[in-house]
Design a protein around this nucleic acid. Structure first.
Lengths: 324, 324
DNA sequence: TAGGTTTACTCAAACGTTTGAGCTAATTTC
DNA sequence: GAAATTAGCTCAAACGTTTGAGTAAACCTA
């Protein structure tokens, strides 16, 4: 393993000088500079980050905590985080905290603390009180995507408004019996907010609320199938289904397909997220697009700029494809 | 920032003892042990990994290099790598190397070398000669998933055999005019191998090869759409399409849907990978399942066990759903 | 009870880098 | 031409941990 000492010896200087050259710190003349750089290159010198981090007390590492990669929106976020980080010469430490697994989340935080990451980006991670306290105690800036974490900045769309606009979008297209599907009542964030927006839009249009048209679920494909089965088994069908995720919307499409229900002819389906599946499914999903790439990029930039004062609301957009 | 020195002072011992206790190294009595552990807990002590890594000369970090997360199989692999790593108290350093971007791949390797990762798992990454040489020079074990990297172990399915079996699977179901779609001729690995297997199966069944039935592409949804358009525009249709990826198969389904071609009635579609989209698409894809989770798990285990002698061929499986 | 062994520690060096302070010789300033 | 400044280096400490070698006391053993 080649160190700056080796380079120093060959160049006839001390390690200090080598360090200053390699870090472009100034205080050397051009001749020694080129000499040192040549030697370093020829020896395939690689800085030992551990040593460097030890004295710097930080790590140019950003921690990314996600629940798992199954949630279809993790990928685009990670992609943009990685790309942005790459451009800034920052590395990504990835950790999964599972779903509602406080012990594992705690492990993730420990890991981040141990590595002295300069910031944490959490994606759709719900913090329990214990971990929230612990997070304060380790004193690492955190920025949360998709959900709010108390006392920490977040980057999200306005879920209430988005659900409202999406519902209104359907109403404007003359759908009246609109179901909301695969939302999680127990989710204080996304779930409740989207239900609120949905109700608000109906009220504004003077459409009476039918509680049976709100079907619980967990954002998954299966939840979509189940909800569709429930809604489309009698003969009092809704004319539009607004799903809380694209996966769930795909589930609705799947059920409709197997039961020969024409989409969008007999039934309109509206998704949420604009994840990979939205374009792949047939008919392609009209959906509420979340700007995942933008969110990932912003998160990295904010951490690097130590700009963690306030929450950011990013714009959503209703993307028209073929399912409405 | 609390260090072992702080703990040592409070416990009335030296840092050495604290270190040994915290690492369960033996050589202390139970009383000091519990005392030290209590103090550590109450101070929220977090080991400084940088310092630890510096003396250990490694990092209990595993590097994962992927091209990007868009390729639908990256997610399940990363998931299982993360889970396995979590169980072994290992962390994941994630890096994207882009597609055929030697400079960025080089950056990734530098990064891994600098962090002194104990091993690299590369997912579907093709190494150019320069980077291959560089990899040798930094002397970090690498295990490659999905493609072979010269002089390094890989974990893959037998692509030739898989394509052969999949084609035979179609032949046995009385399909005769079978197209192979979205394969990359220029890809010396996956592309060529799958073409080889396909041809072999046709030859064995004494079906003459029609070169027009092999349609180039890049495994993407769009490639699938394009191929379908090309194949299904005249009137001499194939009766089955074997796509080189589930995304491409979804593209075929999409084209078929919009042009009212019944699948599997008029046309059978066979996918490859069994990625997330395979189950979500309608009709659900019959596909060649790659054991991604298993592959990720194996990769981590092999790196940890320093068992990098030979290539591993993992079993694939033809998963029957509704598209054939 | 003398000898040896074990237990429970301490000491100090080491890992590779960074960085403020110090030093010398060359250059500038008035 | 003496004094002040600057360029280009060196010195040595520091970061927090680990670990082999050393040591003193306690415990065996015959």
């Amino acid at each position: 393993m080649v160190t700056i000492k080796d380079i120093a010896k060959l160049a006839g200087v001390t390690p200090s000088t080598v360090s200053r050259v390699l870090n472009h710190a100034g205080g050397y003349n051009d001749k020694t500079k080129t000499k040192i750089e040549q030697i370093a290159a020829s020896l395939h010198y690689q800085k030992n980050e551990a040593a460097s981090n030890l004295v710097a007390k930080t790590s140019n590492l950003i921690g990314v905590i996600i629940t798992d990669s199954k949630s279809s929106f993790a990928s685009p976020i990670i992609d943009s985080v990685e790309d942005t980080a790459y451009a800034h010469d920052i590395r990504i430490l990835l950790a999964h905290c599972g779903l509602n697994d406080p012990k594992r989340l705690r492990f993730c935080l420990d890991l981040m603390a141990g590595q002295k990451v300069s910031g944490i980006i959490s994606v759709a991670v719900q913090f329990d009180d214990d971990n929230l306290n612990y997070l304060e105690s380790i004193n690492i800036p955190l920025i949360s995507l998709n959900v709010t974490v108390p006392h920490h900045p977040s980057i999200e769309i306005d879920d209430v408004q988005a659900a409202h606009d999406a519902t209104t979008f359907l109403i404007n297209r003359h759908y009246r019996k609109i179901a909301l599907v695969a939302v999680d009542h127990s989710d204080p964030q996304t779930g409740i907010k989207r239900i609120t927006g949905y109700k608000k839009a109906l009220a504004e249009a003077h459409i009476s609320l039918d509680p049976d048209l709100i079907v619980k679920g967990d954002f998954s494909f299966e939840a979509g199938v189940k909800a569709a089965k429930h809604l489309l088994s009698g003969d009092d069908w809704p004319d539009a289904i607004f799903a809380a995720s694209d996966d769930a919307a795909a589930g609705v499409l799947s059920y409709a397909y197997t039961h020969h229900i024409k989409v969008p002819g007999k039934l309109a389906v509206l998704g949420f997220d604009d994840s990979h599946v939205a374009q792949i499914v047939t008919p392609a999903l009209t959906t509420v697009k979340q700007p995942f790439s933008e969110m990932g990029r912003l998160a990295v930039q904010k951490i690097m700029a130590h700009d963690l004062a306030e929450n950011v609301t990013v714009p959503y957009e209703i993307l028209t494809r073929d399912s409405v």
